[in-house]
Structure formats: structure tokens, C-alpha cells
Amino acid sequence: MKILVPVKRVIDYNVKPRVKSDGSGVDLANVKMSMNPFDEIAVEEAIRLKEKGAASEIVAVSVGPAKAQETLRTALAMGADRAVLVQVEDGAEVEPLAVAKILKAVADEEAPGLVICGKQAIDDDSNQVGQMLAALLGRPQGTFASAVVVEGDAVVVTREVDGGLETVKLALPAVVTTDLRLNEPRYASLPNIMKAKSKPLAVKSPADFGVDVTPRLKTLKVAEPPVRSAGIKVPDVDTLVAKLKEMGVA
């Protein structure tokens, strides 16, 4: 079975984002960029499935600028077998639906048994691509997975839902999106980093798949969240209740 893992190049989770002075977006100049952490979990899960013998090949795919090659190399260094970059212009915004369309086209070509993606990207937190992709492909989906078990031609996914855990069994091929607790991604080993250099990485363009990536949404303004004013300490519960009442929240 082949597993397709879409990965996104995003601002590193350690970096505190800064809004551009004109409010047009987040300043990405010379900011450390990394693989979206949920996607890392997806890659890790695919590798584990392969290590268990449930998968035979892992293809990482990314939609992004030329530099997204680095992100794909990271996936390759972790253990993916090959990679596809659908390259867009540096700085171009590709909206979730366009990404999902491209991924559908890639999936049509690759015919994976399973697509594992991160549940959302930490830059825009849309949480849409996985779901859209499943719909476009007309395949079952298991989102927010905290456990994934392949059983024959089905996959059992444990989902983290508001009320607790939900387990669903999907017929393959299917789409799974990962949640935080699914696994802990490995560190790429040095030999694998070096091997990754020679693993195949194909570069394509949206036009190759006949997908129009022109944005349909317009960003009006990006602003930092208001600075929270400092809290106050109260000596006991009674005072706290009194205070809350005073502020009109209780």
C-alpha cells in the first residue's frame, strides 16, 4: 500500500510571529521555517505503518514555493521514500480548496491506499484541506486521529472529539488527519539525512494538474491579538467571587 503525506512549510513553532507594519500579513523575511508540526506527526505515522508492514511506499507532497523542497527533504530524512513539490511562486497564497484540488490530482495519479495529513497548519489554522480532499476524492475520512490501525482493507481511526474518543472504521482508500497525541515524531538520523539527498523529488506546477490557484478570498487586515492587561492576585475565594461579581462576569 502506498501512503500519500501532504506536508506544509510554515513558520517555525518556536518563532513568535510578527505582523508586518502595514497589516498585510505576517512578516516571514528571514524567519525560521519548518514543517507544520501536525504534518510531522502524519509523516511519522506513515513511517510507523510502513515499519509495521502495513505500507510499502510513502510519498510526501507539498504545495508551496521552491524552498518547500527543504520541508520535503525533512520528510525524506525522516523516512519518506520520495517527494513531489507542486511549486508556486514565492509569496503566493494558495487557499485550502486549491490545495485540496491539487492534492486530489496528485492522489489520482499516485493512487494511494491512504492519505495522512495534519489536521491543520499552524500558520492559518484553517483545518479544511483534509476534509475537502476526502470530499473531492469521494473517499471516507477519519479526522483528528489519535490512533490509526490498518486492518486488512480497512483502517480503524480513533478520533479525538469534544466529548471524548470516537472510533471509526473506514474502507480503504481513505483520508486521515492527525491530531497532536497520535505519536511523537522521530528525529531524523544523520545517515537518513544524507540518504535523503539522493531520494527522488519531482517538481511540478499547478498547471500540470489543471488547477487554478488564484485566490478567491481577500485579506483585509492582519493584527496582533490585543495585549492582555496584567492580572491581579486575590487572597481567597470569597474575594474572588466578589471581584467577579463586581466585574459583572458572574
Binding site: R73, A77, A188, L190, M194
Partner: peptide, 20 residues
Amino acid sequence: FTPDLTDAILEEAAKFCREV
């Protein structure tokens, strides 16, 4: 050892050092 390869090595090492 091209810059992209050494970048990958250094980044992974940096991550291991920072996190482990």
C-alpha cells in the same frame, strides 16, 4: 556536502540538542 545538505544536518542536530 552542499549547503542544503549541511543545513539539514545542522538543523537536525540543533533540534536534538535543544529538545533532548
